[in-house]
Design a protein around this nucleic acid. Structure first.
Length: 856
RNA sequence: GCCCCAGUGGUGGAAUUGGUAGACGCGGUAGACUCAAAAUCUACUAUCGGCAACGAUGUGGGGGUUCAAGUCCCUCCUGGGGCACCA
């Protein structure tokens, strides 16, 4: 008699059993091959959202699949728990950031447990816990000792709303990534991690990351931004000093018509002391910020300093020296030479200030000339002219020749320039990892002695003033200098939260070790992470910082690996339709009701609702679906299956109610299928089978092969489709198997196989069915089935017959039939003959076991 | 502006190396069961023509390579993403 599948009790039952039996706790075991799979850990905002559900389902499917394959799997979870929202909550709701954070963690952990994830919770940690950041402080000190840390005065991006410094990576279109405020330039003393030491290595090693998306590697490559060129000194007329510029086009030096300095260049500052107008110009540039200008106007502004520079190849040739708003102090030397004929930006500038424009690259087929016409710079290939000793050379040769000439004159050298800059990690924030430094007037910046770690955040802080609460704290920052014991001051800046996430994957290996950040033997067993799963929004920042950290931790003896993640998968986002009422206000999905024609109306008022396009779920657009509610009514398996069906994981996934219904219906079908009458566990398949049973076994084993392949290649939507095909076949077979013991043995094989193949996606119902089928051991731990090779091939094959490339018939022939016999069979087919219209075959192409194409 | 990716039925999507386009799901239509509904089950469902057999068309547009193109090449269009005074 059929029983109803009770989702809620079944899911809770297995979640408890997995927890009680510690089914997913990982232990080092050198006799087994390890597999480390990890999702990007969440920020504890309070609730999980559909993006989390998709992310963790993906890594969970991989974890469960690899476990069944016999790997020793580590699949951990933790909390990226420092950050601004906790402080904002403190300001708004008068709740301490720690309390807010830990409560959120508690709630979110419960939600994750309800998803049925195969996680090793024994390794859980939060980055805001002193037991975690203690080790981060130790790493900081080790890095300092090893020369990976720098303190320098530098121009920083200042967020005037959040009152903090932002890394370049956190400035988007000239605005703070979090506040959206226009970023200002300020000069401050900051701690930097010297990621540029590894610029070239980080770039080169991208080539070894063959299981990373091409897109992410490309983005990192562009971000590191390697360019070859030269640094060239231009002597200043009437002065003893010179200006150094960086160029990638030393071949066009004879086309130079001006030099331009960044507004923040020391020489510009020097000139401004005697020139009030220049000082005003520089102030204007700093106020608007260089990137802001780019977005608003792209207008080039310059100020002629009156200085003249001698051309590096001709001391009688003088070039005007400008200060220009488009020159960045942070890149190269903060000064450029302008060659307007072959650089668009220089051309715009030259036209505006009526400077000379001399062409020096002759495009193929073009006439030589002395002045450059038009407003479009030529940047294509060609030969150099108007350039004395470079005349007649191709661009690349001219670059080499020019560089060697510059070096010969002692005026500069060939060099490699990176776009990547050092990582400023100082943040004027409370809720972050304290930087373990003490500032002493006599001894300078002194590292906190290791025995004094962790430098703990004080609990008694107030958030009633803007800026950094640590700075406002009455006593915390006052300490004795560890070297000279005189009164000194603690560093009140905390670490950028990207530091916390740059090594957490390593900490999971020794999550509870109180003494060291990572125990090397454990890290050596687990690392690198075999499969990392997360959003593409971290393609640059987090993933590049982690790659740097791994290198720095290797250099300081903490790790043996160079790359943290050998496999990376970036999943798409979860989207949903958005809805607006007549007044243009956003509505939640549950506030609307669909009409038969696809239009929508308001549930309560009945007024028409505009259905908007699919967009990423966001609170502001109200197009969010709460995972908790879905799990309440349909269960975790349904949510998980829906996440894996239909859309390939790297693409955006549209959340639809009908899709959820489809997943829910499938769970019901699986359950009903498992109620078929079956022989006892372990009943062997008879040696001889009738054709129907044989055919079913072929389908079973072909599905094993194709589903395994789909899992391996992250084609989870295809895996679902193939499993459903097997379900369809088995449902039909149930009727045929009645009162036939041989067929029932095959049916049992089919249903058991189906259960195992589906288990990574539907772990709860799979366990329940497994038990219902009579097994005394759990499905977790049951090995993945192996496809029997003999069942994968057939004695006969269906061959497509084309005439002139068009399909005209399919014929069934013995496997591995030779070309001659196949051709004869094809030509004998009535449809083929009709299509040939009485013409003789001119040519026949034969693809064994697949296709015959007759050219008539 | 530069770089990258994608475009397949009403719809989400499938299709190792060029070799039977549209698997699987959603939706739809008809039917069974039912007093009725829900649930479930069965059949059909790319488009056009045809009672049918079958034929023609068809993977964003145009062109090319090939016996054969969703897949390779050129070009254009559309959508998405990344970078952006980087010298």
């Amino acid at each position: 008699m059929s029983t109803r599948y009770n989702v809620q009790s079944v899911e809770a039952k297995w979640q408890k059993i997995w927890a009680d039996k510690k089914s997913f706790e990982a232990h080092e075991d050198k006799s087994k091959k390890k597999y480390y799979v990890m999702s990007m850990f969440p920020y504890p905002s309070g609730r999980i959202h559909m993006g989390h559900v998709r992310n963790y389902t993906l890594s969970d499917v991989v974890a469960r699949y690899k476990r069944a394959q016999g790997f020793n799997v580590l699949h951990p979870m933790g909390w990226d728990a420092f950050g601004l929202p906790a402080e904002n909550a403190a300001r708004e709701r008068k709740v301490h950031p720690a309390q807010w954070t830990y409560e959120n963690i508690k709630n979110m952990r419960a939600e994750l447990v309800r998803m049925g994830l195969a996680l090793d919770w024994s390794r859980e940690f939060a980055t805001c816990d002193p037991t975690y950041y203690k080790h981060q402080q130790k790493l900081f000190l080790d890095f300092l000792k090893a020369g990976f840390v720098d303190r320098k005065e530098s121009w920083v991006n200042w967020d005037p709303v959040d009152h903090t410094v932002l890394a370049n990576e956190q400035v988007i279109d000239g605005r703070g990534w979090r506040s959206g405020a226009v970023v200002e330039k300020r000069k401050l003393s900051q701690w930097f991690l010297k990621i540029t030491m590894y610029a070239d290595d980080l770039l080169q090693a991208l080539g070894t990351l063959d299981r990373w998306p091409e897109k992410v590697r490309l983005m990192q490559e562009n971000w590191i931004g390697k360019s070859a060129g030269a640094r060239v000194n231009f002597k200043l007329a009437g002065r003893g000093d010179s200006v150094e510029v960086f160029t990638t086009r030393p071949d066009t030096l004879f086309g130079a018509s001006f030099l331009a300095l960044s507004p923040n260049h020391p020489l510009a500052a020097e000139m401004a002391q005697k020139d009030a107008k220049l000082a005003a110009f520089i102030a204007e540039c700093n106020r608007t910020g260089t990137s802001e200008v780019a977005i608003e106007t792209a207008e080039k502004h310059g100020y002629d300093t009156g200085l003249k520079a001698q051309h590096v190849f001709d001391e009688n040739w003088q070039l005007p020296v400008y200060v220009a708003n488009f020159v960045l102090m942070e890149y190269g030397t903060g000064a450029i030479f302008g060659c307007p004929a072959h650089d668009q930006r220089d051309l715009d500038f030259a036209r505006k200030y009526n400077l000379k424009v001399t062409p020096v690259v002759l495009s193929p087929g073009e006439e030589k000339k002395n002045t450059f016409e038009g407003s479009e710079a030529y940047t294509g290939p060609g030969t150099i002219y108007n350039s004395k000793f470079l005349d007649g050379l191709e661009i690349e040769d001219a670059k080499q020749k020019s560089i060697s000439e510059i070096e010969k004159r002692g005026a500069g050298k060939g060099t490699i320039q990176f776009r990547l800059r050092d990582w400023g990690v100082s943040r004027q924030r409370y809720w972050g990892c304290p930087i373990p430094i003490i500032h002493c007037e006599t001894c300078g910046a002194v590292p906190v002695p290791e025995k004094d770690l962790p430098v703990k955040l004080p609990d008694d802080v107030t958030f009633d003033k803007p800026g950094n609460p640590l700075d406002h704290h009455p006593t915390w920052k006052n300490v004795a200098c560890p070297k000279c014991n005189k009164p000194a001051r603690r560093e009140t800046d905390t670490c950028d939260t990207f530091v916390d996430s740059s090594w957490y994957f390593a900490r999971y290996c020794s999550a509870k070790n109180p003494d060291v950040p990572v125990e090397k033997s454990q890290a050596d067993y687990w690392l690198p992470v075999d499969q990392y799963v997360g959003g593409v929004e971290h393609a640059i920042l987090h993933l590049l910082y982690s790659r740097f950290f791994t290198r720095a931790m290797k250099a300081t003896g903490h790790l043996s690996v160079t790359e943290p993640f050998t496999g990376l998968f970036t999943q798409g986002m979860v989207t949903h339709e958005s809805y607006k009422d007549e007044e243009g206000k956003w509505l939640y999905p549950e506030e609307i009701e669909k009409n038969a024609d696809g239009s929508a109306k308001h549930v309560k008022t009945g007024k028409p609702v505009t259905v908007g396009r699919n967009e990423t779920m966001s609170k502001s657009k109200k197009n969010v679906v709460d995972p908790g509610k879905i799990i309440d009514s349909y269960g975790a398996d349904t949510a998980r299956l829906f996440m894996m069906s239909d859309s390939p994981p790297e693409r955006d996934l549209e959340w639809t109610d009908s899709g959820v219904d489809g997943a829910w219906r499938y769970i019901g079908r699986l359950w009903r299928l498992a109620e078929a009458e079956l022989p006892a566990v372990g009943t062997s398949i008879p040696a001889t089978l009738d054709d129907t049973a044989k055919k079913t076994r072929q389908i079973i084993h072909r599905t094993i092969a194709s589903v395994s392949d789909a899992y391996e290649r992250f084609h989870f939507n295809s895996a679902v489709a193939k499993v459903r095909e097997l379900s369809n076949a088995l449902e039909e077979f149930v009727g045929n198997a009645k009162e036939n013991p041989a067929r029932q043995a095959v049916l049992r094989e089919g249903i058991e196989t189906l259960t195992i193949l589906m288990a990574p996606m539907l772990p709860h119902i799979a366990e329940e069915i497994w038990e219902k089928l009579g097994h005394k051991t759990m499905l977790v731990g049951t090995p993945w089935p192996k496809a029997e090779a003999s069942l994968l091939v057939d004695n006969t094959v269906t061959i497509a017959v084309q005439v002139n490339g068009k399909l005209r018939a399919t014929i069934t022939l013995p496997r591995d039939i030779n070309a001659k016999d196949a051709e004869a069979a094809a030509l004998a087919d009535a449809g083929v003959q009709r299509a040939m219209g009485g013409n003789a075959a001119k040519k026949v192409i034969f693809v064994p076991n697949k296709l015959i194409n007759v050219v008539a």
